Amino acid sequence: MATGRLTRARLRGPDFRKLAYDVYVGAAAEEDLGMRVRALRLWSQDRGTVGGPLAALAYDADCPWTDAELFVPSRYHPAPEGTTIRTDRLLPGEVAERFGAPITSPARTAFDLARRTPLVDAVAAVDAVAHACRLTTEHLRRVVEDHPRARGLVQVRRVLTLMDPRAESLPETRLRLGLLDRGVPPGVPQFRVVLLTGERVRLDLAWPNVRFALEYDGPEHRTITGQNRDAFRDAHLADLGWVVVRVPSAMVLDPRALDRLAARVRRAVA
Rank of each mutant, 00 (worst) to 15 (best):
I85H: 09
V156R: 02
V144S: 08
H77L: 12
V194D: 02
E220S: 14
L177D: 06
A29K: 06
V245K: 11
R89A: 14
D22I: 00
L11G: 02
I224T: 13
L70A: 10
D62E: 15
S249L: 07
F191C: 08
A58D: 06
G218E: 00
A122R: 06
P14D: 15
L113E: 07
R134A: 15
I103V: 15
V243M: 12
L195Y: 02
E172P: 06
T173K: 06
R5M: 11
P165R: 13
R75M: 12
K18W: 01
F232L: 15
L195R: 02
A270N: 13
Y216A: 07
R256I: 11
G198L: 09
S169P: 06
R89W: 09
V245P: 01
G4M: 01
L113F: 05
A235S: 14
H147M: 01
A56Q: 02
E30Q: 14
A68S: 12
V265S: 08
V23T: 02
L160P: 05
A114H: 01
R12N: 15
A79R: 07
D121H: 11
P219Y: 00
D204I: 03
A110W: 02
A132K: 03
H139M: 01
L170D: 01
G13F: 08
L237C: 08
R200E: 15
R12G: 15
A79E: 12
P219I: 03
R246Y: 06
P185G: 10
R246W: 05
V156K: 01
D112Q: 10
L195T: 01
A231N: 10
R89H: 13
G82S: 08
T225L: 12
M251S: 09
R116M: 14
V95L: 10
R134N: 13
A56F: 01
V245E: 13
G48N: 00
G198Q: 11
R229F: 10
D181V: 04
R41F: 14
P14Y: 10
V244F: 08
F111E: 03
R115Q: 14
R202V: 03
L57F: 07
R142Q: 14
R176Y: 09
A68K: 04
G152E: 04
S105F: 04
F212H: 04
A96E: 12
